[in-house]
Every structure is written in C-alpha cells, then in structure tokens.
C-alpha cells in the first residue's frame, strides 16, 4: 500500500521515515536506554540542511505567483525550523546527561517533526506543480471552446497552430506526472484519458475541416457535420476534465485500489 502518492516524495521520505520508526521502537523497547553518543555533529548537519531549505523555500515563495503556495509553504518551513530547534535542544541536553529521558523524547519529537514538516513542504510544492499542469489543461479547454466558432480555413489553420503546442505540453506534463504517481489506478486513468485526447485531436481537426468545406460549398449535411464536430470536441473536453480531476487526487482510496 503506497503511503506517498508520488515516487519523488516516496524516494526522499521513505528511508528517513523507516529510520525514525526504528528509533521509536528501539526507544520503547529499551525504556531507560543506553548512554547516547554525542549527537552534536549529526544535529549540526541537520541544522545546516534546514537553514539551506529555509533559504531555498523563501526564494521559491518570493518568485512564485501561486497564492496557495505562498500561503502554505511558510507554515511547512516553520514546522521544519521548530523541529530542528528541538534536535539542537535534545543534543545539548544529552551532552549534559547522556541518559536523559526527556532529551530522548525531544530527539524523537524533533526527528518526527523534521519528517512531518518536510512531508508538508513537499506536498505543498507538489500541489503547486500539479496546479501548473492543470493550468495547461485549462488552456486546451479554452481553445476547444473556440472550435465552435471557427468557420474559415484560415481560422482553422490558426486554431491548429495555437492548439498544437498546448496539447504537446499537456501531453508531456501529464505523461511525466503519470509516471511519477504511486497509485496504479490513478496512473491507468491518466494513461487512458491522455491516449483518448491524442486520438481525438486529429479527428477534431478533420471534423472541423469537413464542416468548413460543406459551409463553403453550401453543401448538404452541415448540421450533421456540426454535430459531429461538437461531439468530438465534447469528448475531448470530458477527457481533459477527467485528467484534471485525477491529477488532484492525492489520498489513497482503498476501494479503488482493491
């Protein structure tokens, strides 16, 4: 059962999560505990890494235009910073008394805090990346909405020129996202929807071209051709809306998994 919803987050947090879990178990089993070694150097290494994260995090916040990231990321950074302070306190207490029970508790609390804060930060960043992909999806949806007012070949050529790069970017981004997800069910939906979008795109252009040709020649079947174009456009819209929905899913759904 995957705990982290992307392989990127899993790769960063899973090893440290296992280590912290092991420490908690050892702490519980050893009760009074052995004398703790001097942890000043490894705690200093964590503090330096946290200081760097705070710096990088603040730069990310300042350069981002994502209002939700600007609101959520400082909270996560604060959590990591507080946890780091707990580790420094624990290290200092253990130096004075290597058997100190409260120091051990503080050490575990600090390590857990680092894990939770880093997890919150990665989630916040990940959600922001997902919102970027969704913006690309919405761009395509906006172009699809224009399909119904295209009535000349010149406009159709321009429509294809505008739509193509957006579709390419959507396809590349969703494909990369799908590969990073740990939820097999969500991955399968994204693959299916993306394939549909890729298949339907040339069919849509073809249906638009046919309609324009009928309109120019004032031939029969204009209503049917328009209905066909609208049908293909609606199907593409539905597939992209489904992609948007699945991109936003992060929680593990046991029923779906089963």
């Amino acid at each position: 059962m995957p705990v982290f919803h992307t392989k990127t987050i899993e790769g960063i947090l899973e090893p440290v999560a296992q280590q912290v879990e092991r420490l908690v178990i050892l702490h519980e089993e050893a009760e009074d505990g052995n004398a703790m070694p001097d942890l000043e150097r490894p705690v200093q290494a964590v503090s330096s890494a946290v200081t760097n994260l705070i710096k990088v995090g603040k730069e990310t916040i300042n350069s981002s235009e994502d209002a939700i990231l600007k609101q959520d990321m400082p909270v996560a950074l604060h959590r990591v910073e507080n946890a780091s302070k707990l580790l420094v306190e624990a290290s200092s207490m253990l130096k004075a008394d290597p058997y100190s029970g409260p120091a051990r508790k503080k050490l575990i609390e600090g390590a857990r805090g680092i894990l939770q804060g880093t997890s919150a930060l990665l989630l916040c960043f990940d959600e922001s990346e997902v919102r970027k992909i969704i913006r690309e999806c919405r761009k395509v949806l906006d172009y699809l909405a224009v399909a119904e007012v295209i009535e000349t070949m010149e406009d159709l050529v321009q429509f294809v020129k505008d739509l193509s790069p957006c579709l390419t970017k959507l396809s590349r981004d969703v494909d990369a996202r799908e590969k990073d997800l740990t939820h097999q069910f969500h991955r399968e939906i994204l693959v299916r929807c993306l394939e549909q979008v890729k298949t339907l795109a040339p069919i849509l252009i073809c249906s638009m071209k046919m309609l324009i040709q009928i309109m120019v020649k004032r031939g029969k079947g204009e209503a049917e051709a328009a209905a066909n174009r609208n049908y293909v456009e609606q199907r593409m819209t539905d597939e992209i809306n489904e992609i948007i929905r699945v991109l936003q899913l992060t929680t593990y759904d046991e029923d779906e998994w089963d």
Partner: peptide, 29 residues
Amino acid sequence: EMILEACKSIAAATSALVKAASAAQRELV
C-alpha cells in the same frame, strides 16, 4: 528543483542522525 534537493539533504542528514541515535539503543535490545 532546488526545493527537492534541499529536502533530500535534510532527509539524508536526519537519517544519519537517527542512525547514530539508534546505534546506542540497539545494543540494549
């Protein structure tokens, strides 16, 4: 992304710290 790299560094440093802390406890269990 720099954020991911910074988080990787924290995870590695925290892992090393927790390993060092666990080593002493493990002797007792």
